[in-house]
Design a protein around this nucleic acid. Structure first.
Lengths: 341, 341
DNA sequence: GCCGATATGAGGTACGCACCTCAAAAATAG
DNA sequence: CTATTTTTGAGGTGCGTACCTCATATCGGC
């Protein structure tokens, strides 16, 4: 016996096709009693809407945009690659995706980009942008215009975004802390570097990291964060200085971007062999450093999942369908040299 | 501009719809020159077949079976749960899945189950079975009957299976080794337990584990494997005995099933607090043990991915479509208390 | 039991593609 | 050149659903 169709439901429920259609698509003008009859028939026959036929008939074209930082970031590069790859398989699924690059540091440009979206020509956006009042306001306006908005990798709490796709950065920091504590061993000092603590991700990671270090490894002391502000020269200088001044330095935790310059500095310092380095995000740079035993562990998130999850959620939002949080929870991956993807 | 359809291709190529159809579906009776014309038009317009419409018209129904061990295994339980969850979304996608339980230790029963499949009523199978000559032979016959066959979690090399869905167990063992070595610290002894070294997974994991331990942590010595043969009493006895006799014991690596009885034994021994325990597969038991700090790390694979990947591959095999290996590569997940999913 | 309002039925078209038939055109062989 | 084979065109039908129109049936209030 093959799958039941709407016709079977109509027959089973003793109503017409039109009524079944009204019930299934939640159109008005059906008595509660009739709705119940149809739903009972659906349950009895185990009817499941044929997604292929529905999509075909519906002629739905989901139009989404991804707003990503423009700069030379390895992470966003891999994200864009994942996006392109996913797109190739999604094109058969009636979704079209546009990627919009934005200059991270120019809040006005970001807002301009967001507000340039025509709600008529776009169903939803996934954005990865720094948290500023202006951006929150722009999100508000997008929502008002009826667009679905999800934040990607970096959240905008207190904004009206519909959903956040990304890892729990506190937990990621804790994971890094646990590994750092165990890898460093008895005692020592740990340096924490990041682009900027003004970014929410870094702040949360630092929070988690500190909590675990203080709780589980009290004999390892964590130095104040060093911020590079995307300035690789500045980063190298500071790192070299710290290494010179801190003979007990046993580990370095890199919470954000700029792993390339960090590694350059460490290599030049000659102290790399004795340091436990833990970084975030698998990129060509961190991958190579893992292989060469320069980095001990990388905490990362699967950008493919990130992209697919964002697309799924955007679609659900457009269709007013429920979102299965469990499926959209992005996992915190721990990558050692041995389990490199 | 929306997506081009077959009509657009026909117009662009200057041929009829029927000819486009013949080319797209590789039907005979078209001159090479005409085929080239159509393909050029496809390339020019960027035509992509609408999978929804195609499946609808084709009236395709994929029928697959999953052959899984019957016994009370936490891992296969989670696998079955994942399968059920995925099933709900797949039924809308014209695939139906049947789960067949088999007694792991009865090779004949396994073969009987495999050979009972009617090639007319089944398009493909995903199997998770121990490696025996009889099973390999059964796979051979299934392939002869035209079925797609993929191995799940546990591979059958040298058989004619089309594809293996699972992790690289040597790499998984290496990952466990790296963590064990670093967590144990300076020196000590490590116990390795498993159900049976006759299972390929365990053998491969042990191989990887030993390689890393010998290479990177020569001062930690790894004891010979203890096999429980699914006998929890036996397992508990042996483990207790080893703990008594080996005061330098610093870690336990559990390569397979039976984590529940292992943990029971360790708890009873009172030595759990001083031991680094690393196990495989996230299950309710290992999860709880992680939370309670009894296990330090779990090496696992995402069963949801396993199932979805198997279904994707089976479909691709049935449709003679290419398989994107990168997408099907199951990652080796490292789970600490801090990054529990 | 009549009214207006609401609910339901009957039937149609369209979506993009697969697959079919039959006739006509073109290429090839003799 | 004709006879034969091969290639192409024209057109149709159906897959399961969405969405539309318009006529008819049923309901609730009086």
């Amino acid at each position: 016996m093959s799958r039941p169709t709407v016709h079977d439901i109509a027959k089973e429920a003793g109503v017409s096709l039109a009524t079944v259609d009204r019930v299934l698509n939640a159109r008005p003008g059906v008595r509660d009693k009739t709705i119940a009859k149809v739903q009972a028939a659906v349950a009895r026959l185990g009817y499941v809407r044929d997604a292929s036929a529905a999509n075909l008939a519906r002629q739905r074209q989901y139009k989404f945009a991804f707003v990503l930082p423009d700069g030379p970031s390895q992470f966003t590069d891999t994200l864009k690659v994942a996006l392109r790859e996913t797109y190739a398989s999604q094109i058969a699924d009636r979704v079209s995706v546009k990627v919009v690059g934005i200059p991270t540091h120019d809040a006005h440009a970001i807002v301009r980009a967001l507000l340039s979206f025509d709600p008529k020509r776009l169903d939803g956006v996934a954005i990865m942008v720094p948290e500023t009042p202006q951006v929150r306001d722009a999100v508000h306006r997008l929502k008002d215009a009826g667009m679905a908005v999800v934040t990607l990798a970096s959240d905008l709490p207190n904004s009206e975004r519909d959903y956040f796709i990304g890892i729990n950065n506190v937990a990621a920091g804790k994971t890094a802390g646990q590994l750092m504590g165990r890898f460093v061993g008895a005692q020592g000092e740990v340096l924490v570097v990041t682009n900027s603590l003004r970014s929410r991700d870094s702040l949360e990671r630092r929070l988690g990291f500190d909590e675990v270090m203080a709780g589980d490894f009290p004999r390892v002391s964590v130095l104040p964060s060093v911020e590079s502000y995307d300035d690789s020269l500045r980063m190298e200088e500071i790192v070299l200085e710290v290494i010179m001044r801190r003979p007990r330095l046993a580990g370095v935790y890199s919470m954000g971007f700029g792993n390339r310059s960090l590694l350059n500095a460490l290599r030049r310092s000659g102290a790399l062999d004795d340091l436990i380095v833990i970084a975030h995000e698998i990129t060509p740079v961190t991958k190579q450093a893992l292989v060469q035993n320069e980095i001990s562990a990388v905490i990362t998130q699967n950008v493919g999942h990130l992209v697919r999850s964002a697309l799924r959620v955007l679609r659900s939002l457009c269709d007013d369908m429920p979102i299965f949080d469990a499926q959209e929870r992005i996992r915190i991956d721990v990558v050692l040299r041995e389990n490199l993807p």
